[in-house]
């Protein structure tokens, strides 16, 4: 705490008057910028309490007669066409599609990442170095053509539009975060495992009871990041899970409907509803996210 205070003071007491004026101007600029990042959501929130007519005539003013009609309609089973046959989905179904996919994809991919990272970090076996190098090289080479072959593969084995297909495709171990988790395991002293082995612990027991708890901070950070990534994913569910729209895909369907019918205020309500869970999530894990990603220098 004292160190932090010293850090803070050391950066400000040496400033000249001119530099303080520049800092003041930058502060105002950053404040305007920060407000611009939240203004669109204020605009959405305000207009979500209007009816279509009021929004049409006065989109920038406060609602004169606030109404919850858009939210009520949305939660009373309002359906939007998926564009696949006669398929339709409610906002509840979109929520379920998003949450079920994000949770299962996060859990499976993190589990396999931990398994692979741990074994490659802690066990000597033929091919270990080759595998590790191959994974590093694969993360450097741009694979912009792979999406078409992936689509062909998923189409050939008839997994497009299936939950299991999405999980199989996204449960990869060697994706973002693998190298970090590998280095987390690498940094844990092997002496802990040796002591456990003397006590008769199996390799599985050592992995689950000793190593995972010791690397839990790093694992938790990447679990949160991966969950956010899967939750916010748009293009992959759009291509590979079109008949079960997630919130992201569903919102684009609602927007297309709003362009045709003019029901923009309902779209605004849906957008607000889609933001709320992620804001709650952010409020809970904010400290973890900011301290481990930004301050830790991950990019």
């Amino acid at each position: 705490m004292k160190k932090a205070k010293r850090k803070h003071n050391s950066r400000s007491y040496l400033l000249t008057k001119r530099e303080k004026i520049i800092l003041g101007i930058v502060f105002v600029l950053l404040l305007i910028y920060a407000l611009s990042l939240i203004f669109p959501f204020f605009f959405l929130l305000m207009n979500s309490f209007k009816d279509e007519v009021e929004y049409f005539y006065d989109s920038t003013g406060f609602p004169k007669t606030p109404t919850f009609e858009n939210y009520i309609t949305l939660f009373s089973g309002y359906k939007v066409g998926t564009g696949i046959g006669d398929g339709e989905a409610t906002i509840g179904e979109m929520f379920w599609n998003s949450i079920s996919l994000a949770v299962v994809e996060t859990v499976t991919s993190m589990f396999f990442t931990c398994c692979a990272a741990y074994v490659l970090a802690k066990y000597k076996f033929p091919g270990n170095k080759f595998l590790y190098t191959f994974v590093i090289v694969s993360s450097v080479v741009p694979t912009i053509a792979a999406i078409s072959a992936t689509y062909r593969l998923m189409s050939d084995i008839q997994l497009i539009g299936t939950f299991i297909g999405m999980i199989i495709m996204n449960c990869g171990a060697f994706t973002g975060g693998f190298l970090y988790i590998h280095s987390y395991f690498k940094s844990i002293p092997w002496s802990f495992a040796e002591s456990a082995m003397i006590d008769g612990a199996s390799d599985f027991k050592i992995f689950f009871r000793i190593m995972i708890p010791m690397a839990k901070n790093g694992i938790l950070t990447f679990t949160i990041l991966r969950f956010l990534g899967f939750w916010n994913e748009y293009w992959i569910p759009y291509l590979f899970y079109p008949n079960h729209p997630t919130l992201g895909v569903g919102l684009t369907l609602l927007k297309a409907e709003a362009v045709n019918t003019g029901s923009y205020t309902m779209l605004f309500a849906a957008m607000i509803v889609a933001i709320v869970p992620i804001l709650i999530f952010y409020a809970i894990f904010q400290k973890q996210l900011l301290s481990n990603t930004i301050d830790g220098g991950l990019k």
Partner: peptide, 15 residues
């Protein structure tokens, strides 16, 4: 500043 990394790109681009 971290909000655009948290909120879906669909919502941010739409807004």
């Amino acid at each position: 500043f971290f909000l655009p990394s948290i909120i879906s790109i669909v919502i941010y681009t739409m807004a």
